[in-house]
């Protein structure tokens, strides 16, 4: 079975209309970007705490991630994984690389150099990057789904 040229073009147009509706339904409010940024910043700041409390804080942050996923599902009726294949993936990995470098730097400065507050500084930077990356990710996703950012 093979569609005609017209059927193919019409099917693609209908598909793109659905994708555009998906992108609009998936739009995040500023609070959602802020929640992601706070989790990111918090995670990077944990080396400022003694080991036991750092582990405890990381556990709480993981719970926070689960709550954000639940919030997404309740708000939009879907969940979009940040690591999904597509044009957003390079952005996800670039952000991950920067944030991991910040974590390593903060950890090294706090544990080896005794600058205990360094992770708080890198955590603040990571939160800023997280907020910007979250907004940028949404813009790239919208564009991929055929909606102008």
């Amino acid at each position: 079975m093979q569609p005609s040229f017209t059927e193919a073009a019409e099917a693609l147009a209908a598909m793109r209309a659905s994708q555009a509706r998906l992108a609009q339904a998936a739009d995040c409010p500023p609070a959602r970007h802020f929640a992601f940024a706070a989790l990111m910043g918090g995670l990077i700041a944990t080396p400022a705490l003694p080991s036991f409390y750092a582990l405890l804080a990381e556990g709480v942050l993981l719970l926070g991630v689960a709550l954000v996923v639940r919030w997404d599902r309740r708000r939009t009726g879907m969940f979009i994984n940040g690591y999904r294949a597509g044009r957003t993936r390079p952005l996800t990995f670039a952000m991950l690389a920067v944030v991991l470098a910040l974590y390593a730097t903060g950890f090294w400065l706090a544990r080896d150099r005794g600058i205990w507050w360094a992770p708080l500084a890198t955590g603040t930077v990571a939160a800023g990057i997280g907020y910007y990356a979250s907004m940028l990710w949404q813009r790239v996703f919208r564009r991929e789904m055929g909606v102008s950012a």
């Binding site: 509706r21 969940f79 999904r84």
Partner: peptide, 8 residues
């Protein structure tokens, strides 16, 4: 197409 854009 919708499902391809989301996890679920």
């Amino acid at each position: 197409a919708v499902l391809a854009g989301v996890q679920d």
